[in-house]
């Protein structure tokens, strides 16, 4: 299994707080890896470094064989738009755009024409069974629907990696299960890797394996 996205020896501190103290990580194409660990252990910081949002103080992040932080900020921004997708706990949808427009947004930003982008968005939304809320604004849909719209938005560019940071954190069990099932199914279909930050075992159980972050270090166990 070749590593699609990997990190070695990541160090990151915010002022006096040390979030990462030499974390390593690797994920292959199509793999779903749960990043677990107690709160404050540096899970989110690891995700932010892997996604090229936060520059680590030391260590490297490699994506498809290139050093992510050797690129310029603009290149990383473009990469995040084309190759990565993001699902956060909440509040990631643009409140004034309709759900359909939200999902189409990454394509529009990439220069796709509106009609085409929205058609593609509608298709992904249908797969996630949220096509019925397409004309509504995010404020008018339920939490679970909103998260599935967010998953649709993350998927719409057919990314290589999806970063999901507590994607079910604000949902009840049933809605959470639904979001996870659809996220993982869609990812598997498209050979998309998923970095899944969660503290819930039932959510982590959707992964292929887990990486545990404790005190800024990772312990990875590859299970057969």
């Amino acid at each position: 299994m070749t590593t699609l996205l990997g990190a070695t020896g990541l160090h990151k501190s915010f002022g006096p707080t040390e979030a990462l103290l030499g974390a390593d990580f690797g994920i292959a194409a199509g793999e779903v890896v749960a990043v677990m660990g107690p709160s404050g252990s540096g899970k989110s910081t690891l995700l932010h470094c892997l996604a090229g949002i936060v520059r680590p103080d030391a260590g490297t992040v490699g994506y498809q064989g290139r050093d992510l932080f050797a690129d310029t900020d603009a290149e990383r921004t473009a990469l995040r738009r084309t190759d990565f997708g993001f699902v956060f706990q909440f509040g990631q949808l643009v409140p004034e755009l309709s759900c359909l427009e939200n999902v189409a947004l990454p394509l529009r930003l990439g220069g796709t024409r509106r009609k085409k982008a929205e058609a593609a968005a509608a298709e992904v939304m249908a797969r996630l069974e949220v096509d019925d809320v397409a004309p509504k604004r995010p404020g008018e849909v339920s939490g679970g629907q909103g998260q599935r719209v967010a998953v649709a938005r993350a998927l719409v560019t057919a990314p290589k990696v999806i970063f999901a940071d507590e994607p079910t954190g604000a949902l009840d069990s049933l809605s959470g299960e639904r979001v996870m099932r659809m996220l993982v199914t869609a990812a598997k279909e498209h050979d998309t890797a998923v970095v899944l930050v969660t503290h819930e075992a039932r959510v982590a159980a959707y992964s292929d394996r887990e990486a545990v972050v404790r005190d800024g270090r990772t312990r990875q166990q590859v299970t057969a």
């Binding site: 749960a34 677990m36 075992a201 039932r202 982590a204 159980a205 959707y206 992964s207 292929d208 887990e210 545990v212 404790r214 312990r219 166990q221 299970t223």
Partner: peptide, 20 residues
């Protein structure tokens, strides 16, 4: 003791994956 716990978690998760 952390190793004990990590090992156990791993085993738990493996079971949970199967169940999932």
């Amino acid at each position: 003791a952390e190793d004990v716990l990590d090992t156990q978690r791993s085993a738990h998760l493996a079971t949970m994956r199967k169940l999932t």
